[in-house]
Design a protein around this nucleic acid. Structure first.
Length: 829
RNA sequence: GCGGGCGUGGCGGAAUUGGUAUACGCGCCAGGUUUAGGUCCUGGUGGGCUUCGGCCCGUGGGGGUUCAAGUCCCUCCGCCCGCACCA
């Protein structure tokens, strides 16, 4: 008997799928379009091609492919494309280090990914393959940028960046370690640069509201996004600096504490700071403080436990509710990025303001009484963040603060000194990167006309070849002088190109649309194709993208819908996040030397084993620790299934009628139908693939146990063959090559063209059931009973049990509980 | 600190609605096949006690609800992931 040879089997089927283009699907109107079937868009997050695929990729695509196969066999026309998120920092850093152009390293990696995905047998429509670094793709990324620009959703503003003075380059957060440049250890400085932003904040409300439109997203992902958007309701109140006739609006969630404001604080980056101090005695001290803050690392500044620091400005503002003048300060605990960059400080009711007041010996004023009226008289129990009656608040005294809240806001509004306001933590998306390896921003700067978008017919703005990828105090693209110097598209005068490139998150915010019409040279996508396939019915990827990528893609979808380019508001109707695979309990990393190379395992055991193993390790949404022994266990199981097939293939038949089957033949058929039912339900309850695969293992084990007895019986061989074929059919989504091979040998057809099997309800039910008998909730015996036996009969059987009677001896049965099909519990006293 | 997730055998994990705790896999033990090892096949495998009939304990700790709790409630402890003075 031939043993299981995955290499030969896998090569055979991969060749068939490639030659026959089995997984390609056509768009409506195209040749081969099947309008009969409902569509299903199954998508895994596209990989970033760096080096070789790792086990995280294997898991993601194994899970996604199982879902794609399952849907196909349920009659869906499944679109299942693949592409590469090819721009990005690692390839550029590699280029700086080795001089190898990023394009070469990236395309070599894409080769490797593409080859391995085929070796894994992932059912991809390769005709739709794309890579974001190709001009035919980023041309349309640039096109979207221009559409957003037209809509006012792309704008320029000054923003601080982290700057390494030695390398003369902007650093990404991940390149800053302990406030120092990762490469040379030089302390990082802050610089301000004019940069491009996308106005995602304009969509904050819709990004929150439209969670309702999603079919199924993990609750924790929705929660993380909610927190990230960070909506808070409150009020804006305007404090006025009379000396300079300057208004300072502040956002507060506690307008009810306005009467308790005893000082006022600006962020060190506040734009009006300069005017406030110019020519005043405070000027030198404030400037010194602001510079010192600018030198601090972001982490240091973010440390909550640090003592509060700041400097008085020698100015004051007027509290709009009581006309009181309160002193102004600058302090680093106020952030320019949140709210208005200025706060009213209420030290009696806010912890941070309290700390600051203590450090600078500023007065506290209690305006809300706590539960303890005694405490209201002195500073006991401060800061007090809770609710209570108002005090020291003029005509609001005595009212409950929750009630006064609305009245104070209304009063402010009537006076023109404030209004209701909603503030978001979410900030606009900074998309400029002072990098080479990204899509050029399609804009030129003309001396006459200013910012001029590149006309659509001049796209793509192609990334020029450069010799040196190291930035020398400017974006590496600035070195390509011939490329930078251009003509103004508007006036024809001399102009310079934008030398920043786009954040790679921009590339990956719309790739799922381009898949639907990837070769279109006229438009970014054909509207009818997009309308047909969107939304993505099942999106699969790592939870590490729970916030940024998913939020950006949602924003793009909404913006594109507003631009009348799409008909959906949400890109991904259902989201599944897979957990991370670890090794020896730790995250895999090259530096730790604990990486697992999928290629190695595929070479040794075959792709089917590797794929099935990552699905069997545990629930796919959770993480799991890689175990070589576990891989062998799965390989053993697939080999057993293989040998079962070998044993019954072509063996003398004898027809099998499930409705009249008896004894062990019927039991084996029943086990097969149980497995069908179990696997089907496990797909339905959140892709519980580990238990689905366990069910197929049970079926195979059962077949092994009984097969030698069955071969003599009427229909015995056929029953074992049915078990093997069913096992192959059910394991196919995880081990497609083996599943296809066994199915073909036993049935002569192609398993992916077969509908998903249906469990026969007759074989799922049993005439007799085993019930548990408990006395006072403790298990005492098991009894066999007819499945439809009435309660009285079950009670009789329970009481008749010798083991049960021993525990009833001399006691009174006070309660009898019967759960049909499950148990009988007798409560005695 | 805030938000999210999680604690079950030697290990990964299972347990649909509160109803047989530990399915399946690994590991280990025994038997069979084999010249031997490996492969392969079968069986066993939570802990303690046992008069060998069974009995008691057991899902991070403690408490509660219930005829019945891994599952629900309260409380404490530990681990993992995100975010960081959010006004």
């Amino acid at each position: 008997m031939a043993s299981y040879e995955p290499k030969a089997i896998e090569a055979k089927w991969q060749q068939a799928w490639a030659e026959e283009k089995t997984w390609e699907v056509a768009n409506p109107g195209q040749h081969g379009y099947d309008g009969e079937k409902p569509k299903s868009y199954v998508l895994e997050m596209l990989p970033y091609p760096s080096g070789e695929p790792h086990v995280g990729h294997l898991k993601c695509y194994a899970v996604g492919d199982a879902i794609a196969h399952f849907r196909r066999r349920h009659g869906f026309e499944v679109i299942h494309p693949m592409g590469y998120d090819a721009f990005g920092l690692p390839a550029e850093n590699n280029a700086i280090k080795t001089g190898e152009p990023p394009r070469e390293a990236t395309e070599r990696s894409i080769e490797s990914f593409s080859r391995q995905f085929r070796e894994w047998g992932i059912s991809i429509d390769w005709s739709r393959e794309l890579a974001t670094h190709k001009p035919e793709y980023y041309r349309w990324t640039q096109w979207i940028f221009l559409r957003l620009f037209e809509r006012g959703l792309a704008y320029r503003d000054e923003a601080p960046v982290q700057w390494c003075p030695k390398d003369a380059t902007v650093l990404a957060n991940e390149q800053v370690v302990d406030g120092r440049c990762e490469r040379c250890g030089t302390p990082v400085e802050q610089r301000r640069l004019e940069q491009w932003f996308f106005k995602i904040t304009e969509y904050a409300e819709r990004l929150l509201a439209d969670f309702d439109l999603l079919e199924s997203w993990p609750e924790h992902v929705v929660t993380m996004q909610r927190n990230w958007i960070g909506r808070s309701e409150g009020a804006e109140a305007t404090f006025r600096c009379e000396d300079l006739s300057l208004d300072f609006p502040v956002f507060t969630t506690r307008p009810d504490t306005l009467f308790g404001a005893t000082f006022f604080v600006l962020a060190p980056e506040h734009p009006e700071l300069e005017r406030l101090i110019a020519g005043t005695p405070a000027e030198a001290a404030v400037r010194e403080y602001v510079n010192q803050v600018a030198r601090e690392s972001v982490e240091d500044r973010g440390d909550e436990d640090r003592p509060k620091t700041g400097v008085p400005l020698g100015r004051s503002v007027v509290n709009p509710v009581n006309g009181e003048e309160i002193p102004m300060f600058v302090a680093d605990y106020v952030l320019m990025e949140y709210g208005t960059g200025a706060i009213m400080a209420v030290p009696a009711h806010d912890g941070r303001d309290y700390e600051f007041a203590r450090a600078f010996d500023l007065p506290l004023r209690r305006v809300i009484e706590g539960t303890d009226p005694e405490a209201a008289r002195d500073d006991e129990g401060l800061p007090y963040p809770g609710d209570g009656a108002m005090t020291a608040s003029g005509r609001f005294d005595g009212k409950h603060n929750r009630e006064a809240y609305g009245e104070i806001v209304a009063w402010l509004a009537a006076e023109g000194r404030g209004r209701e306001a909603v503030n978001y933590r979410l900030r606009d998306w900074l998309v400029s990167r002072q990098r080479y390896w990204g899509a050029p921003i399609p804009v030129v700067y003309c001396e006459e006309c200013g910012i001029v978008p590149v006309p659509e017919d001049q796209l793509p703005v192609e990334l020029p070849e450069v010799d040196d990828y190291a930035p020398q105090g400017r974006s590496p693209l600035a070195a390509a002088e011939d490329w930078v110097a251009t003509e103004c598209p508007r006036c024809g005068g001399s102009a310079r190109r934008e030398t920043d490139t786009m954040d790679t998150f921009v590339d990956s915010s719309w790739y799922f649309i381009r898949y639907l019409d990837p070769r279109n040279e006229e438009v970014a996508w054909d509207r009818a194709a997009a309308d047909h396939w969107l939304s993505v019915d099942q999106y699969i990827g790592g939870v590490e993208h729970a916030i940024l990528h998913l939020m950006y893609a949602r924003f793009f979808t909404k913006a594109l819908a507003d631009l009348d380019q799409l008909s959906v508001q949400e890109p991904f109707a259902n989201l599944f996040t897979q957990g991370m695979i670890t090794r020896d309990g730790a995250k895999m990393s090259k530096s730790k030397g604990n990486t697992v190379s999928p290629a190695e395992y595929v070479a040794r055991y075959g792709a089917d084993t590797a794929r099935t193993y990552v699905c069997f390790m545990g629930p796919p949404e959770r993480g799991g620790d890689w175990s070589d022994e576990g891989v062998e266990g799965v390989n053993r199981f697939l080999s057993r299934l293989w040998r079962l097939c070998e044993e019954v293939e072509g063996r003398g038949d004898g027809d099998l009628d499930p409705s009249t089957a008896e004894g062990e033949v019927r039991e084996l058929l029943a086990k097969a139908h149980w497995a069908i039912d179990k696997v089907t339900r496990d797909f339905g309850r959140g892709f519980q693939f580990n238990t689905a695969i366990a069910a197929v293992m049970e079926l195979v084990n059962e077949a092994y146990r009984v097969k030698d007895d069955l071969y003599g019986d009427e229909g015995g061989v056929a029953a074992v063959r049915f078990a093997a074929a069913t096992g192959a059919s059910l394991i196919f989504p995880f081990a497609p090559h083996l599943g296809a091979e066994i199915w073909e040998r036993l049935s002569g057809t192609r398993v992916w063209e077969e509908p998903w099997p249906q469990a026969d309800p007759v074989l799922l039910s049993s005439d007799t059931v085993t019930l548990v008998v408990q006395v006072n909730g403790k298990l005492r015996d098991r009894i066999e009973a007819a499945a439809d036996a009435p309660e009285s009969e079950l009670l009789g059987l329970a009481r008749a049990s010798e083991k049960v009677r021993r525990h009833l001896d001399g006691k009174e049965v006070v309660k009898e509980i019967v759960v049909p099909g499950k148990l009988v519990n007798l409560v005695v006293r």
